[in-house]
C-alpha cells in the first residue's frame, strides 16, 4: 500500500495533468449543460460589475470615425424615410381595404459592448444590459448592418451574446429574389455558407440574405448577409453559396436587442 502511495506521489504531476485533460474533455463533451449555463450566468454578472475601461485617445479616434459613418447613414435613412412614409400611407390604405390588423413594431433596447470575451477567437460579446432591462436568453441582437447574434446568458446588468460568426450558430435564412430557404452555417471570419440551395435556384453574388422567419427567436426579413460566391459542382444536388456576414462583431460598439420580437412566421 505504501508503495502505491509512493508511486502515485512520484507521478503526481503526470497524474494531475491527465486529470486536468480528462476533466477538460468531459467539459467539452457536456459543455452546454444547465450547470455550465448557471456558471456562465454568474461569470457574466461579475463582468457586468467590473469597472469600464476608458481607453482615451484610441476611443476618441474610433468614435469620430463611427460618428462620421453614422452621420452618413443618417442622411441615407432620412432620404429613404421620405419614400417609406409614402409607402406606409399606401400600405395603411391597402390594409384598411383588406381589414388587416396592425402588426406591433419591434421594441429595441440599445446596449453597449463592454467586453469581447477572453478567448483568442471572437465568438461572444458582453453587453451592459441584462434582466433589469428586460433582456432574456434567446433575444435577437442587431448591429447597424444586420443580425449580430442572440443572447445566451443573462445576468441582472450584463448579457453574453453568441455571435453569428460562432462555430455553433445556425440560422434559417432566405436568399435572393425568389426567397430560397437555406441554413446559414459560419465558415471563417465574416464568411458563412448557406446550405440546401438547389442547383437551379436563381441566386447570384450580391443577393441579400434575410432571416426566413422559421424560428421562435428571429422574426423574418432581418438583414443577415450578402451572397459572395455561388459555386456549382457537377454531380452535386446543391449549390455552394458563400455569403459575407454584414454585421461586423469586432467593430460594433453599440448594438440593439430586440426585446419584443414577436413569434417567427
Amino acid at each position: 500500500m505504501r508503495n502505491l502511495f509512493e508511486l502515485l506521489y512520484y507521478f503526481r504531476e503526470l497524474l494531475l495533468v491527465l486529470l486536468a485533460v480528462l476533466v477538460s474533455l468531459m467539459l467539452l463533451l457536456t459543455g452546454e449543460s444547465r450547470q455550465s449555463f448557471a456558471l456562465q450566468d454568474l461569470f457574466t454578472g461579475m463582468i457586468g460589475m467590473m469597472p469600464r475601461t476608458n481607453l482615451g485617445f484610441a476611443d476618441i479616434i474610433s468614435y469620430k470615425e463611427e460618428n462620421q459613418v453614422l452621420r452618413h447613414r443618417l442622411m441615407q435613412y432620412a432620404l429613404l424615410n421620405a419614400e417609406l412614409v409614402d409607402a406606409a400611407r399606401e400600405n395603411e390604405r391597402l390594409r384598411d381595404m383588406l381589414q388587416f390588423t396592425e402588426e406591433s413594431p419591434y421594441e429595441l433596447q440599445v446596449a453597449e459592448v463592454i467586453s469581447r470575451g477572453a478567448s483568442s477567437i471572437l465568438s461572444t460579446i458582453t453587453l451592459n444590459v441584462g434582466t433589469r432591462h428586460g433582456v432574456e436568453p434567446n433575444f435577437p441582437v442587431l448591429a447597424l448592418n444586420g443580425l449580430l447574434g442572440k443572447t445566451i446568458s443573462v445576468a441582472p446588468n450584463a448579457s453574453i451574446v453568441q455571435l453569428i460568426t460562432d462555430r455553433n450558430f445556425r440560422l434559417s435564412v432566405k436568399v435572393g429574389s425568389e426567397g430560397i430557404r437555406g441554413i446559414l452555417v459560419p465558415l471563417y471570419g465574416p464568411f458563412a455558407e448557406v446550405t440546401g440551395i438547389p442547383l437551379n435556384s436563381d441566386v447570384r453574388p450580391g443577393d441579400q440574405v434575410l432571416t426566413s422567419g422559421f424560428s421562435d427567436i428571429y422574426p423574418k426579413n432581418l438583414p443577415v448577409a450578402l451572397v459572395d460566391e455561388v459555386e456549382v459542382t457537377p454531380g452535386e444536388n446543391f449549390s455552394r453559396v458563400t455569403v459575407r456576414i454584414q454585421a461586423e462583431p469586432s467593430e460594433a460598439e453599440h448594438v440593439f436587442i430586440m426585446i419584443d420580437h414577436g413569434p417567427g412566421t
Binding site: V17, I47, S123
Partner: peptide, 21 residues
C-alpha cells in the same frame, strides 16, 4: 476554464485543456 466561460459554452474546456498541457 475562466477564459472558456467568457465565450461560447459549446467549446467549454478547450482553453482549459490546451493550457493545462
Amino acid at each position: 476554464l475562466l477564459q472558456d466561460l467568457t465565450g461560447s459554452l459549446s467549446v467549454l474546456g478547450a482553453n482549459a485543456l490546451a493550457k493545462s498541457v
